[in-house]
Every structure is written in C-alpha cells, then in structure tokens.
Amino acid sequence: MTRRQLYTGIVSLALASVIFILPFVFIFLTAVKSKQDASRLIFSWPVEWQFWENFLQVLQTRNYLLLLAYFNSTVITVFAVTLLVLFGAMVGYVLQRRPSPWNKVIYGFVLAGLMIPPAVVPTIWVLQSIGLFKTITGMIFIQVAYGLAFSVLLFRSFIATIPRDLDEAALIDGATPLQIFFRVILPLLKPVTVTVIVVQSISIFNDFTNPLYYLPGRENVTVQLTLYNFQGQFQTQFNLLFMNILLVTIPPLIIYIFFNRQIVAGMTAGAVKG
C-alpha cells in the first residue's frame, strides 16, 4: 500500500464516519437515554444509561404489540421466502430447460413484475373478494407475487450453468420430473437459493408500503407498521422511538454480517450483463 492510499483511506474513513456512521451512533445513544435527555435530540453522551428500562418499556407498550409484530413479520417472511424459492426455482427451471414460444410471454411478465408499481386499490378489491384482505395469508401471497420476478431471473440464470446431462442421467435412472427437480436440481441450487433467501428476507422484513395497504388494523401489525405507529405515539418519548428503530435495525445487521457475500451476489446480479 502506498502512502497516498493510506492517507486517502484515512480521510475517506473520517468522512464516512461522519456521514454514514454518525446517524447510527445517534440512534443508539438516543435509544439508551432517559426521556428528558432524549427529547433534546442532541448528539451527546447519555446522562444516565437506560438500555434495559427502555428496551422493556418498548416491548411492553400497548400490551406487547412489538412482540406480536415480530411474530407476524417473521411468519410472513418465512412463508413468503419459502414459496419464493420454490416457485422461483420451478419457473426458472422450466423457462431455462424448455424453449417454447411461451417463454417470451413469461419474460414479458417478469419484466412487468420488476417495473410496474402494483395497483393497490384494485388489489385490495381482489383480496377482499377472495377473503384474504387484512390477513397474514394474503400478505404472504402478495409478497410472493411481488418478489417472483426477481427470484425467477436469479434462478433461471443459475440453472443455465447446470449441465442438462444431469437431468438426462436422472431420467435414465428412472426419476420422475418431480424427482429430477427435487433430488438433482434443487440441491445444486444452494448458492443462489441462499442469495434469494437473504435478499428477499431483508426486503420483505423491511417492507412498509404493502402492510400499510393490505394489513390495516391492530391484530396483524408488522414490525415496520409498529414503528410507523409509534412515530405518532412517541412524539415526546424519543428514547423509546429510537429503541424501536434500534431493534428494527438489528436483524438486517446480523444477516449482513453472516451473509455479506450472498447479499452482494444478489444485489449485483445483472450488473455485468445489464
């Protein structure tokens, strides 16, 4: 490393600390302050540390609403991501392996799914007519519908790298189409599956707009919705509001620490090809 690279690094780190790290430090410091201390909104060392008090108080607010929200968000994320992996892999597989005039149509829908903003009120109308409005089940399927395009693209391009000979060897070994898919192809999709799981989990867990529209009401709140509602309720209790933000920030941070590589792979898919 040259001297120049060292100095540039130090200056960059200093700038990045102010611009990117400071807001997170601010979140943390405010979250552990007392009520009066936090309400001044200034960037200062807490007069007294109230980590546990604030933590417990946030949890207990409105009869443990936050715990319910974590439960709901987890259920939605787990089920939606499972379906996204399964459906995405199956569609990507047939799309890649079986050329047909239909493929063009499917690609058209995939692009539409990536680009077009969902028509919210008509979607509510559809959800209502099939009895899924304001339900966790409905929310799961909504997330599946909105996330499919991305999953299909990722799986399709990965499946292109798996030689067809394997399918044919399995066919001769007497495997049915389902057995070929589940016993030969799916296990080989592990790297891209992890990428899809991680990227979709974060995006579904962080989703605010869709629960806002499709899950109104108290019993089916998600984590982002509680945060939004607390914003109104905790106008004077910034310590609790920021404790809530802190709690919402931690899951993606943990995932990022463990799955850094897969997130990068998922986020940059298509960067090279355009």
């Binding site: 000979d165 060897a169 066919l171 001769i172």
Partner: peptide, 16 residues
Amino acid sequence: PSKRGIAMVFQSYALY
C-alpha cells in the same frame, strides 16, 4: 428412457 432396459455413459460423465 428408464423403461427401455438401457444404461448410458455420458461424455461429461454427468455425475451428480
């Protein structure tokens, strides 16, 4: 293919 009483060895071996 699986009902023909044949077995095939591929150029790429096609091992799982």
